[in-house]
């Protein structure tokens, strides 16, 4: 167990190191001088003296290798610099917006799981029936429809035409419904197929024949005996799809004006707010590797066979 944790911790450090290096290189090769951009962002006239003063203040006049080492130190000590726009520490800005994104991702995950279970079980029970055929079409569409288009369709149908739900902002429960559905629906239909296939595969086991012989209906066997076994792969799916939800939330947030990390990073890109973009990648890397560690850990707890 200790070995597992240590290995994972090493992986985390490796990923953060790689991402930090990547962002460092990208910023250096990207066009535009950070000092000039920073002055422009604060609407200060960019005279050559002002630029020079700021450049030495930011450490841009040091050698490249010196800058790189300093940047790595900053990353690993949590000093991620300040936003050009708000002048506040990047890490604080990111943490302020994290809850909104987590809320959206969790809600998306809930919708996804609901769709997976309802669709997965019903299509397995009525194999090759009408529900199954509809499920197949939905799963095809689910992976082909871009999230942003689905978001537009949802807004047009439920906000504009029917006027049932609000289309922008965060706050009440109603605000959450459309973004979460947009986020979770597509993946839910795809995973429903996975669950269905898995359940039907488990149906080939000998004990099913025994249960059938004792007079249990196929429906009962599926729901009360097979489902429990089919849950294990779902646990891994939940972990990876939670990461997927967090990633997908960038687009969904910008459709629904959801005040989370994704919308913030897009705003920052438009403002050329480099420290925020850099901080965001490192933050995301830690978040995602962390989630993976957690999933593996839970898996280890659930399935004793893996502990050997």
């Amino acid at each position: 167990m200790l070995k597992f944790l240590l290995e994972r911790l090493l992986q985390l450090v490796l990923v953060v190191f790689c991402v930090a290096t990547l962002t460092f290189i990208l910023v250096r090769i990207s066009p535009g001088d950070p000092a000039t951009i920073m002055l422009k962002a604060n609407e200060v006239p960019a005279s050559s003296e002002a630029i020079h003063a700021l450049r030495s203040e930011l450490g841009l006049t040091n050698s490249i290798s010196g800058q790189y080492i300093e940047w790595l130190q900053q990353i690993f000590t949590g000093e991620w610099g300040e936003s050009f726009v708000s002048q506040k520490p990047v890490i604080n800005e990111l943490f302020v917006r994290l809850p909104a994104t987590l809320e959206l991702a969790l809600a998306g995950l809930a919708i996804m799981l609901a769709v997976t279970f309802v669709m997965g079980i019903s299509t397995a029970v009525y194999e090759n029936g009408l529900a199954d055929k509809i499920g197949r079409v939905l799963a095809l569409l689910g992976s082909a429809i871009p999230t942003f288009w689905l978001g537009f369709l949802c807004i047009y149908l439920f906000s504009v035409s029917l006027g049932w739900l609000p289309s922008i902002g965060r706050g009440s429960f109603e605000n959450l419904i459309l973004p979460a559905t947009t986020l979770g629906l597509g993946l839910g239909t795809v995973y429903a197929r996975v669950l269905r296939a898995h359940m039907l595969e488990l149906l080939q086991q000998p004990f099913v024949k025994a249960s059938r012989a004792r007079g249990l209906s196929k429906k009962r066997i599926l729901v009360f005996q097979i489902l429990k076994q089919a849950l294990l792969p779902i646990v891994t799916m939940v972990g990876t799809s939670f990461a997927f939800m967090l990633g997908g939330s960038i687009i969904v947030e910008s459709i629904f004006s959801w005040p989370g990390l994704g919308q913030y990073v897009i705003e920052s890109i438009n403002m050329r707010d480099y420290p925020v973009i850099q901080g965001y990648v490192v933050f995301a890397a830690i978040l995602f590797v962390g989630i993976h560690m957690l999933v593996d850990f839970i898996y280890l707890l659930i399935d004793p066979r893996l502990r050997v």
Partner: peptide, 15 residues
């Protein structure tokens, strides 16, 4: 482990 879209957006954002 990091979703494609996050890295891609960050790279385009920086470049």
């Amino acid at each position: 482990a990091i979703p494609d879209i996050v890295l891609t957006i960050a790279i385009v954002g920086l470049l």
